[in-house]
Nucleic acid binder design. Sequence first.
DNA 1: CAATCAGGTCACTAGGTCAT
DNA 2: ATGACCTAGTGACCTGATTG
Lengths: 218, 218
Amino acid sequence: MYSDILVHRTLKCVGSCGLSSSLDDEVGFPADIKLESTNDCMPDEDKDFKVCVVCGEKASGFYFGALVCLPCKSFYIRCTKDGEPTLLVSVTGIVISPNKGRIRCQYCRLSTLPHGGMCRRNFSEEDLWKTRDIIVGEKSCQINPRNRNNCRYCRYQKCISAGMSREAIKMGRPKSQMEILHNSPLHIHHHFVIVVVRSCLPGITYLRPYFTTAITCQ
Amino acid sequence: MYSDILVHRTLKCVGSCGLSSSLDDEVGFPADIKLESTNDCMPDEDKDFKVCVVCGEKASGFYFGALVCLPCKSFYIRCTKDGEPTLLVSVTGIVISPNKGRIRCQYCRLSTLPHGGMCRRNFSEEDLWKTRDIIVGEKSCQINPRNRNNCRYCRYQKCISAGMSREAIKMGRPKSQMEILHNSPLHIHHHFVIVVVRSCLPGITYLRPYFTTAITCQ
DNA sequence: CAATCAGGTCACTAGGTCAT
DNA sequence: ATGACCTAGTGACCTGATTG
């Protein structure tokens, strides 16, 4: 039994946006949990805007355990259809999935082209695999709705870090708690939700969606 | 800054699975997180909570003659709405209900693919029925709350073997529910994971998959 | 009444198809 | 490979029936 119930959390602001002052409502914790919110910077007009935690487009629902848009949902399905992929970035800037897929990664291409000097027209599958060890690239693309198709590697990594998982499937009509969360606005730049849980309410079950992206302790 | 790092969690074992020894490995927490596995942190009244004999989730009552959860009750109603279904597992791993429904069974798919050698693109309804006798697959999926939707065939078989039946309907107020509950068969392998987080390691990011089912605080 | 269940409803999602 | 669109399965919630 805990006499004091504290759930600390912080929304880490990436970029120039602001966080709102009403985090409690945003993340949708039960009303009977006392919260200490430290944030003050989200624009009012974005408060009701639910965004995909992968690319920032308007979100459509909880797919594979994360609040994402339909394109990113489809992307995740494709990526994990035959098991977890091991996407590689070639010297030519081509991201290779082992079986078939390839797509250009503009970011990684820029950073890796000098090493190989190959041009896209001439690359062959064989060459890609030969140069396998020097092709790691930056692996740090910023994903947004416009460039999300530029780098499959980083987009997929973002799916993973957002908590998407075949294990996290939640089917059917959501519980009322989830409906609250479903209406929670998350600004496009607020991809990292840092939650510090000191102690929680006895007997309350905190479903995973409350921890929108990850749980980080300070 | 937390000096003491405690991640309490409880795996409630009902039946013969006996999860006690290798809790850490099963849930997959990082090795550098200090864990205390205990059975003490659960309220007494919940220690004996009854689980669904089909999937292992917390049971809601006696539906169609068996102690099951509400999702499995709904599942059984759907399956038997138009008479007993004959769910089949094709060589392609598609579970077919006679009329229309199909859902992929990842487990059976893996085990049956070698037998048929068909590729998913080419299968036809006719082929499915032709290969009826060689498509039985393993039919032995372990059903738990997380994977219960992966294989309709095995979920339904578990309903049957649990004694669910349209003949077993009992309406109205039960005589002594507690007595019935305590006499119910509970010899199933289930993987209901309850994690109690008191405080976490500074700087460590706990991705959602670690919290396999839910986070329950006491 | 009070407790419990059968069954319906419908807000949801997984996964497939197909034009691009 | 992508993403709009579609279908069918799922499960939370509700209602009415049943029985002690």
